[in-house]
């Protein structure tokens, strides 16, 4: 049994189908993860000097609550394996729903569970990236903006946002690649992504070398696309 190139060409359609699914889960996951991460990241520093001045009145207790919720989310996700999160969402969560409500046939599609898992998982790590970048923005810039009479929201959008975003790009690239590779774990809930496709073909023809080599190259190509897109954005942003 030497290296058979034909094995690769024969299994290519199925593997490409898997790669497509991997790509879809990743893109939906990181787009959702960005939204989730920005909200939770800003939530963790709500009402602190990193976002302008400390609030007063009702906003003070409100910001404390927001900080606790965001912090709890981030620590829970970071503190548990993604594979457990996926299993919980796919197998355990419907049971939980059944137990506390009257809904009998509650089910989550495997693909949906996969996307949601990546969104929440990536979101927690992105939240820390967002928080770190925002608190690294020189406080003097905020004071300069506030001294002009500019509102906190406008400063977040026009000053903190752009400066922090540029600093986020390298760690975001890292996280996007990790999320893409994490999709391979959804083999456990039966999503037909790339790794699962490879596993199934392998089980029928036992050509481990050809199959896993092809699968690896496909992952490498997808992560390269992600890395290059981020480098492109980084270069396009103004130099400062």
């Amino acid at each position: 049994m030497g290296f058979e190139f034909s094995v690769i060409t024969e299994s290519l359609p199925a593997l490409l189908g898997g790669a497509k699914l991997t790509w879809i889960i990743t893109i939906l996951g990181i787009v959702g993860g960005m939204i989730c991460g920005i909200l939770a990241g800003l939530g963790r520093i709500a009402g602190t000097e990193a976002l302008g001045e400390e609030p007063h009145g009702i906003f003070k207790p409100l910001s404390v609550v927001i900080r606790y919720i965001s912090g709890g989310y981030v620590e829970t996700i970071r503190g548990t394996p993604i594979i457990v999160q996926a299993m919980f969402l796919y197998f355990a969560f419907p049971m939980l729903v059944k137990a506390v409500t009257d809904i009998e046939r509650f089910r989550i599609e495997a693909l949906t569970a996969a996307v949601i898992t990546i969104i929440f998982n990536a979101g927690a790590y992105i939240a820390e990236i967002v928080r770190g970048s925002v608190i690294s923005v020189n406080k003097g810039l905020l004071e300069a903006g506030m001294s002009l009479g500019i509102s906190r929201l406008q400063l977040i959008v026009h000053v903190i946002g752009p400066i922090a975003f540029r600093r986020m790009i390298p760690p975001l690239g890292n996280q996007f690649i990790i999320s893409l590779k994490d999709t391979s774990l959804f083999i456990v809930i039966g999503v037909g992504e790339l790794t699962r496709q490879g596993q199934e073909i392998m089980a029928s023809n036992f050509r481990a070398l050809e199959i896993w080599l092809t699968v690896a190259v496909m992952y490498l190509m997808m992560t390269t696309v992600l890395a290059m897109s981020l480098r492109h954005i980084e270069r396009k942003m103004k130099i400062f």
């Binding site: 003097g140 004071e143 300069a144 001294s147 002009l148 009479g149 000053v159 752009p162």
Partner: peptide
Amino acid sequence: QIRLEVGMVFQQFNLFPH
């Protein structure tokens, strides 16, 4: 409103770098 009427210049300039 106070800040609109009272501007400030800092030791470290604090210009928006972008």
